[in-house]
Amino acid sequence: MDRLVFLLSSGLARGAVLALFALSLVIVWRSARVVNFAQAAMAITAVYAAFAITAASGSYWLGLLGALAAGALLGALVERGPLRFVRGDDPLSGMIIAIGLVMVLQAGLAMAFGPEHRPMRAPFPERPLMIGEIPVLSPYEVFVLIVAAAVMCALALLFGKTPLGLKLRAAAFAPETSRLLGVRVPRMVTIGWMLSVATAALAALLLVPTELGLNPHAADLLFVDAFAVAVVGGLDSPVGALAAGLIIGILDSLVTGYATAAAAPLAVLVLLTGVLLVRPRGLFAAADRRTG
């Protein structure tokens, strides 16, 4: 029982990070209809910015703000740069540019910072708190859960309750109609990319202290898992990203705890295959599609 509670609680924390990263993929998919295969490389580039800022200032919090800003800036640069020249009706070109971007960013990071794993300290202790004799979440995992929940609430408020969110949603689902209604669609796409990469950067920043350390490939597995989360939840669905993130985080933790870590990716793959067979567009995919 103790073990189950511990695995569930740590799975919840990992699931929150997965959900956050999957949400970043959903945001960019909704705004630009692109699966951004460079999301991990872009996120980890922003984490390197955080690493440099924290090293220079001694403040984790300044580093966190730096990661968000660097992520947003990188999102804008990539969308306004190479992706602006991609034809909208050709999804392959966007994917190829993203894959090229992965190579450029990861090679660039390795040249600038070296390929080794650099330790990143968490701002809170990582030893689990004890409730009676049962180990549960560590203070850092509580922090991760609070940050993830706060970001998701903020994004939900932004998209659901503000004029900017209304324009972002309108531009995502009917770009041509939105233009006729005065919505600056290209600007909305850029903002979507900024929000997306900043969210991914935050997820990667939260993950790195619990892994081997900072390295140009440190978010690669996170991307693979989060992509599975986004597909299971439905690429169009923020709620799906949240639910599937928590499900896969807990599944991963339980399989790792009760079987072996090597079996965890297999379990995720089985779940992904099962969902794709039953609901090919994901568990929470909406019935309607994007229009012109």
Partner: peptide, 24 residues
């Protein structure tokens, strides 16, 4: 302008649809 195909944002509420042109 209205459109032949209406061009409504189907998942948005009626109120949100009408608010889009004013959101700028």
């Amino acid at each position: 302008r209205t459109l032949q195909g209406l061009g409504l944002f189907e998942r948005m509420t009626v109120l949100e649809n009408v608010l889009v042109p004013l959101s700028g």
